Amino acid sequence: MTEVGDRLVETQAAKRLAQVKERIARACAICGRDPATVTLVAVSKLHDVTEVAAMAACGQRIFGESYIQEALPKMEAAPAGLVWHFIGHLQRNKAKLAVGRFALIHTVDNLELAGILQKKTEASGLTQDICLQVNVAGETQKSGIDPEHLPELAEAVAAMGALRVTGLMVIPPVFDDPEGARPAFARLRGLRDELAARLGLPLPVLSMGMSGDLEVAVMEGATHVRVGTDLFGPRQR
């Protein structure tokens, strides 16, 4: 890319980042929250490293990836000092590769996957932060633990010494009206509160909300919003 092209990409990135941050700030103002309590995860999956670098040059530091085979080379080529989250379905045969590379894995939803992560994390002498993904609407095409079985999974994972359960994650059903997602977000918050009391753990993270519904998610207590399209534009592939 030419120097002029680089500047154009960075200018577009700065505009998009400012717009998303303003949306978060407005949502926080409505519900009386401090915008600093909402972490913006820039979803860079299927976008190349030059776009990540442009967004990083504008001050964004936390990026989310969904595919191990895409993420790891991108992370190596990206500017230093960035923080990476894994937000996609984590295949069991790739789980070991995620340990120690991502500050937070948002999508643990079964005991077998947790066991693989625990074994690798323990062997590496690390502690891995995770969220438990919950399928609050029972959608068969989506990953996530059923709410009914969440306490059992959470108790088992919390007992694993190398994994630290930090909270819950949800991908709600898709609605034309963002308000349609509100019940899913409220349900996740309630499940988190119940689970925190049951486990005696703070569980500070509520990973919920994307480009189309981040305001509703913030008003329902989201601590991490995962925004891709409104930051990077349509995916390139």
Rank of each mutant, 00 (worst) to 15 (best):
A156D: 06
V170G: 06
P151V: 15
D6Y: 10
Q19D: 14
V157R: 08
L150F: 11
I24M: 00
A29T: 01
L111F: 03
A186L: 15
T223S: 14
P35K: 00
V165L: 14
A197K: 14
L201H: 10
S124L: 12
V227K: 02
E10C: 09
L104D: 05
G180S: 06
V157C: 11
I68N: 11
I62V: 15
H89L: 12
E65G: 08
D230G: 06
R182N: 10
K94E: 15
Q133Y: 07
A103T: 09
V9K: 12
N135V: 00
G59Y: 01
R189F: 05
L153R: 04
F63Y: 12
C131T: 07
V43R: 14
K15N: 03
D48R: 14
T223E: 10
E3Q: 15
A222N: 03
R226I: 06
A123V: 11
V83I: 13
Q236M: 08
R23S: 02
L231P: 10
A98Q: 03
M208D: 10
H224I: 11
V225I: 09
I145M: 15
V174W: 15
V49W: 07
D129G: 06
V108P: 05
A78I: 09
G125I: 09
R164Y: 05
A123Q: 09
R182G: 08
K45H: 09
H149R: 12
G88I: 15
S207N: 02
A158F: 00
E70P: 10
K74T: 11
L206Q: 03
